[in-house]
């Protein structure tokens, strides 16, 4: 299956439109498969009002799908917490304040690398 398989459909530009078409034209309810497929669009508020309401109606009556979404959210959180705690992580540098926020550096930056960078810069200056 190609990466674009679920992203674009004729006449549509994204996941939200994809699920909108499926719900409006084919049936009244969505399935657990569609919950899994369009979960990202739901979490990123990319679903239109009707599709979002259908999504939430399904969740209200399907505990396994709620567990799936909870585990998906915990996965994101676990990745963030575990990777940000790596040695060398410092104050946030990413655009969202992301990347290592809150964790103090676990080891000093490599002095040899710093000296190599400073020497290379002097070399550039000398032409």
């Amino acid at each position: 299956m190609s990466d674009e398989h679920k992203c674009t459909r004729p006449g549509g530009t994204g996941i939200a439109i994809g699920i909108g078409l499926a719900i409006d034209s084919q049936r009244q309810d969505i399935t657990c498969r569609e919950i899994g497929e369009f979960l990202l669009a739901y979490l990123e508020h990319d679903l239109g009002g009707g599709a979002r309401a259908e999504f939430e109606r399904h969740l209200n009556k399907c505990p396994p799908c709620v567990h799936y979404i909870d585990g998906y959210r915990e996965t994101i959180e676990l990745v963030r917490r575990c990777v940000r705690d790596e040695p060398g992580a410092g104050s946030g540098v990413g655009p969202g304040g992301g990347s290592q926020c809150g964790d103090a550096p676990k080891h000093k930056p490599p002095e040899g690398l710093i000296q190599a960078i400073l020497a290379a810069k002097r070399s550039i200056e000398r032409g």
């Binding site: 104050s91 990347s99 290592q100 000093k108 930056p109 710093i114 400073l118």
Partner: peptide
């Protein structure tokens, strides 16, 4: 430049 490097190299190296 040296302060720029020292202040930022830790998190950037981690990235």
């Amino acid at each position: 430049f040296e302060r720029l490097v020292r202040d930022n190299i830790g998190p950037l190296h981690a990235v």
